[in-house]
Amino acid sequence: MSQEVLKIEGLSVAVDGKVILDKVDLTINEGEVHVLMGPNGAGKSTLGYSLMGNPKYEILEGKVTFKGEDLLEKSVDKRAKAGLFLSFQSPQEIPGVTLADFIRSGMEAKGERVSLYKFKKNVKSDLELLNMDASYLDRDLNVGFSGGEKKKAEILQLLCLKPALAILDETDSGLDVDAVRTVSAGVEAYKKSHNGALLIITHSTKILEALSVDRTHVLVGGHIAAEGGPELVDEINENGFEKYLNN
């Protein structure tokens, strides 16, 4: 029986005094793929940021357990060190810090010492998988990167940092068909090689094509309005969110 990685119980979150998430419950087990869908403004990204610990998001009530430990009492870096990863919708640019150095800083923060030479050698196959030239490693993080390149750089970090649970916040948004396929291949590789669990926040289903979805959650107005298996993704693709909006 697979182990529980994340358990959210009655989580309510506010931003600037406005309640965005209201009593959300969600459980993810080791190696499972969960999809979080919902209309714009439903609170999907808020859930990702809240779990990662962005101080802008105020936890009003609820409990979150990550690998058996209280997640909400940990600082952001400690959540990352514990094995939680958030792929950002709009990753930040850091002039003067190369992609290689940034990833190595994250690895070193987790206690994994790796020389630049060894890192570059180890990461070669991941770069090939993501159709990224090795020169990206020496470029300043996300500076001058296209939208697609930024998303690939996020997935490269996912592959290197090997978290227990990755939350992908609309990683497929703004990408062309080929780029979605490439990113999807990276996500699949993460899942296969590390038996990583995934919470995929998405509007589209292209990124899911290579993955076997275990559970689907529909978030509307800050509530989990529906839950089901992979068939729920197809139903929403066909009918949209209208029936949940009216409930």
Binding site: Q92, S105, A109
Partner: peptide, 12 residues
């Protein structure tokens, strides 16, 4: 926040 989400503490 982005940097901390990769495991670096605030001072790092």
């Amino acid at each position: 926040f982005y940097m901390q989400s990769r495991g670096l503490d605030r001072q790092e």
